[in-house]
Amino acid sequence: MTRHTDLGPGRDPQAGLHQAMAALSAAPPGGRGVTSDLSIDETLLLHSVGWEPVDLVFGVSWWSIPWGAWQWQTGEIAEASSAFAGAFAEAAQQMREECAQAGGSGVVGVEIEMRVAAHHISIELTGTAVRRVDHHQAGFEFISDLSARDFALLTRAGWWPLSLVVGASFVVAPRRTARQWAAQQGQNTELPHLTEALYLAREGAMARMQRAGSDAGADGVIGVRLREGPLGHSARIMQFVAVGTAVHLAAGSHRPIAPTMAVPLDDAERTFEAASLRSSR
């Protein structure tokens, strides 16, 4: 879905430009400057729902995983899962504190960078703290990886982001016994123990994310991405990480947005598409 904003007839862009040039010769306003990584579209959309950026905020946490955690077991690696949870919670907490310190009520467009190395897990969050234009403060309200555009759209429909929620699980793929291997060789057949191990790991990651959502009092978690794959330092160890934004219905009921169909006349489309979200994340 894209949105079209016709800034309307009767505006004179050149007059605006002249005004802008004149402003450049004036003295800078002084005080503490706002910093933001939002685009102009995002800034405008955010403003249209009554919010403005305050400051770039961060949350970083590195957690250690002891040597041996990966080597001496099969099945789920509890140390890694708990290090992940600990690092994420700490990074999110720091981001909340930075947001509160900057006078923001929430953080939008949080970028999440996570790395799992042999002996540590790092979580690095970057986002823009925002506050209400009318400066009405209701304390800390949300952290969300939704873009400012998604935030504006969602709040129009009566929904509200609450927090980032994650769940991770790390498993060692079980080895096949010699007998299993021999029996399956040359056959086209399902491998139940492997299927089960991976299935359970995925369910485990989802279940943890869900629980985080429940704890936040969410009505739902949207934009869930399941990242999975072998770890760099060991092909037998697979990580499953589910990340999403917990949301709740703040208005009494869902407000329809009533979109219309449109045929674009652009040749080269350089617009936002939902599909691009999926592949890029």
Binding site: M1, D6, L45, L153, A262
Partner: peptide
């Protein structure tokens, strides 16, 4: 590193017209 464009407000925001949601038929 952090970089970006330093901007100065020279007039207040005009209220943004309500954006119209559309679904594009590709």
């Amino acid at each position: 590193t952090i970089k970006g464009t330093r901007v100065r407000r020279f007039k207040d925001f005009d209220p943004l017209p309500e954006p119209e949601p559309v679904v594009r038929l590709r």
